[in-house]
Nucleic acid binder design. Structure first.
Lengths: 242, 242
DNA sequence: ACCTGAACACCGTTCAAGT
DNA sequence: ACCTGAACACCGTTCAAGT
C-alpha cells in the first residue's frame, strides 16, 4: 500500500491533512455517532490517513476536542454579528447558542470547557463593545453577556438531554410524549412522579425561551424591546406588565 | 492474597461492596482527579475489591455515571425542600443547583445527561405542585422549573469552566485575575480580545446570579419578591423599576 | 515538514470459575 | 447471590524510521 501515487479509485477524502479538515471530520463523527465514539484511529481512517498522521496537526485528543469547541464557538459567533442595538444583539447571541446546540447536541458537553471565553466569541464581544460606544464598556452589556450565555447554554444542555420538550422532534403528539417519558423513567417510578415529569415537559418551549431571555436582558437594565416592528423574537407569556 | 479471612491490617475500606458505596467512591474520584481519571480498575482498587466485583452492582460504566448523576440530583433536591412560597422555592432550587455545581465542578458534564428529569428532583417537584394547591399545577411554576433550572445549570457550567469569575476562588486580586486570563488565552491573542475577556470576567458574579434568577422568576409571572424581611437573596442591580 | 507502522500501557467488558 | 483472575478487543500515545 505505498501511497506515493494516488490510486484515484478512492472516493475517500485523501490529499492534504489539515487541522481544519481534522476538526471538521471529528465534529461530523460526534454529530453522527456521539462523543464517545470519536476515536483517533477511526478518525484517521475516515480521513484516509494513518492514525499517527493526526498528531502532526493536533497535540493530543484533548487538544482536538478544544479545537472542536472553538469551531463551535466560531459557528455561534457567525450567527450573532454585532448590532447597533445591544439588547437585540444579546437576543441573537442567545438564539445562536441555542440553535448551535440543537445542531450539535452530542457536542454540547465540550462547549464550555475551554477555561476562558473562546476567542471567536471574544472577537464579536470586542466589536460589540466598540459599537456601543463610550470609553468604558456598558456594564449592562457586560452583565448581559454572562447571564444570557449562561441561560442559553443551560437551555441547550437541558434541551439536548430531553429535560425540555424539543420543538424540533415535536410533531410529537401528546401520546407520544407521554410514552417517551414513561419509557425513559425507571419502570417502578410511582405514578405521582411520572405525572410531574409529563406536566413539566408539556410546556411550550419556544415562548419560555424567548420570554426568559427577554426577562434576563431587561433585568440587566435594558428597556423591554417593546413593539419594535422587525423584532424576530415575539414576547409571549407573563413577561410584560404595564 | 486470599481474602477469606480479613487481615485487619488494611485501613482500606473493605467489607460489603454496595452500589451506594461504589457511587460515593466514584464521585470522590471525580471530585479529586476529574472525570477522565475515573477507571473501573482504579475504582475497584480504591474500594479494596477486584475490578469485576463492581459489575455485580453496576451494569456498566455508563450505568455508574448515571447513578452518580442521580446522586447529585438527590443532593440538589435535599437543598431545595418544598416551600409554601413557590417563588422562593424556585430561588432555592437555583441556588441548590449552583452550589452543588461548585462542590462538584468536575462532575458537571454528567449532570444533565439522564434523558429525563431525574427522579430525586421529580420527588420535590411533585410535592411542590401539591403545596401550591389547585387541581392543575400552576403554569408559572411549571415554566419556572424549566427556565430556572436551565439558567442555574448553565451558570454552574460556565462558572466551572472559568468563563465567569468565581467568587469562591476569589480572594483573587485584580492582578491575579488578569494573569489567569492572559495565561489561559493563546499567547498570540490580540490585546483587544484579552481586554474584552478581562472586562467580561470583572463583573461581580453574586448579584448577577441572584438578579437573573429574580428576573426569570418575575418573567414567569410571579410578583417580584420585594422587601420580604427574611429573604436570603438580595436584589442587586437594574432589576426594579417603580 | 509531514507521514507512518510497530509497540506499549491502559481500559471496559466477557467468560468461566469459584464461594 | 456475590466475588474474581485471566483474557480480549480497543484506544491514546511514544518511538524510530521513513519521505
Amino acid at each position: 500500500m505505498g501511497a506515493t501515487t494516488r490510486p484515484a479509485g478512492r472516493t475517500r477524502a485523501r490529499a492534504g491533512l489539515t487541522r481544519q479538515r481534522i476538526v471538521a471530520a471529528a465534529l461530523d463523527e460526534i454529530d453522527a455517532h456521539g462523543l464517545h465514539s470519536l476515536t483517533m484511529q477511526g478518525l484517521a481512517r475516515s480521513l484516509g490517513a494513518g492514525t499517527m498522521s493526526l498528531y502532526n496537526h493536533v497535540r493530543s485528543k484533548g487538544d482536538l476536542l478544544g479545537a472542536v469547541s472553538e469551531h463551535l464557538w466560531a459557528e455561534i459567533a457567525a450567527l450573532a454579528p454585532p448590532s447597533d442595538d445591544p439588547a437585540r444583539w444579546l437576543e441573537s447571541l442567545a438564539k445562536a447558542i441555542r440553535d448551535t446546540g440543537r445542531r450539535h447536541p452530542n457536542a454540547l458537553s465540550i462547549l464550555a470547557v475551554s477555561g476562558v471565553l473562546p476567542p471567536p466569541l471574544l472577537e464579536v464581544i470586542a466589536e460589540q463593545f466598540d459599537r456601543s460606544g463610550g470609553s468604558e464598556p456598558d456594564p449592562r452589556l457586560v452583565n448581559g453577556i454572562t447571564t444570557v450565555a449562561a441561560f442559553a447554554i443551560g437551555w441547550a444542555v437541558t434541551e439536548a438531554a430531553g429535560l425540555t420538550p424539543r420543538a424540533t422532534v415535536a410533531h410529537e403528539t401528546e401520546r407520544q410524549r407521554i410514552r417517551r417519558i414513561t419509557r425513559a423513567l425507571p419502570p417502578e417510578t410511582p405514578d405521582r412522579l411520572v405525572d410531574a415529569a409529563i406536566t413539566v415537559c408539556a410546556a411550550e418551549p419556544e415562548p419560555m425561551f424567548s420570554a426568559s431571555v427577554a426577562a434576563i436582558i431587561k433585568g440587566c437594565g435594558y428597556e423591554p424591546a417593546s413593539s419594535r416592528p422587525g423584532s424576530k423574537i415575539s414576547r409571549a407569556s407573563g413577561d410584560s406588565r404595564e
